[in-house]
Simulated scan of single mutants.
Amino acid sequence: MTIGTETLYYRGDDVDLEATLYLDDAVGGGLAGVLLFPEALGPGPNVYDRARRLAEAGYAALVCDLHGGVVHSFTNSGAGAMGMPDFARYDAAADRASWNAMMALFADTIG
């Protein structure tokens, strides 16, 4: 068994996003899929490890991008020092757009 990864780039409501897909290279399409969401500071080793283990168990695992590289005040205590008020960086519409774009990408990728 070889677990492959692929970085997928996509766009949702003018936000550039990327995700990492984990699959067993020997398995074809039609897999059950799992979306993995990052910790508050973004995807870390735990999320990627879990994705690899899910792929080893026969699932397609997609590590999702929620923020598109945006620094949110709730994930970066220094956002205020960047000239942004603590409440100003979170954008619920962008998060919804990210979610919709991830779901469409996932459906297109593993159908």
Rank of each mutant, 00 (worst) to 15 (best):
T2L: 09
I3E: 03
I3L: 07
G4K: 11
T5M: 13
T5W: 09
T5K: 09
E6W: 02
E6P: 04
L8A: 08
Y10V: 00
R11Y: 00
G12H: 00
D14Y: 01
D14N: 07
V15E: 00
D16T: 05
L17R: 01
L17P: 06
E18W: 04
A19D: 10
L23N: 00
D25G: 09
A26C: 14
V27L: 14
V27I: 12
G28D: 13
G28L: 07
G28I: 08
G29M: 10
G29H: 15
G30A: 07
L31S: 10
L31Y: 11
A32V: 13
A32F: 08
G33S: 14
V34D: 01
L35P: 10
L36E: 09
F37M: 13
F37A: 12
P38A: 10
E39V: 04
L41T: 14
G42L: 04
G42Y: 02
G44F: 06
G44E: 05
P45A: 10
P45W: 01
P45D: 12
V47Q: 15
V47L: 15
Y48F: 13
R50A: 14
A51H: 13
R52C: 06
L54F: 09
A55P: 07
A55Y: 13
A55D: 10
E56W: 06
A57L: 12
A57N: 07
Y59T: 09
A61C: 15
V63F: 11
H67E: 05
G68V: 15
G68I: 12
G68D: 04
S73R: 01
T75W: 04
N76E: 01
S77V: 10
S77Q: 06
G78S: 03
G80C: 03
G83R: 01
M84V: 07
P85S: 13
F87A: 04
F87K: 00
Y90G: 01
D91N: 12
A92R: 14
A93I: 02
A94H: 06
R96G: 00
A97F: 03
S98M: 03
S98N: 09
N100D: 14
N100F: 06
A101L: 03
A101Q: 06
M102C: 09
A104S: 13
A104T: 13
L105C: 02
L105F: 02
F106S: 08
F106M: 12
D108E: 09
I110M: 03
I110F: 08
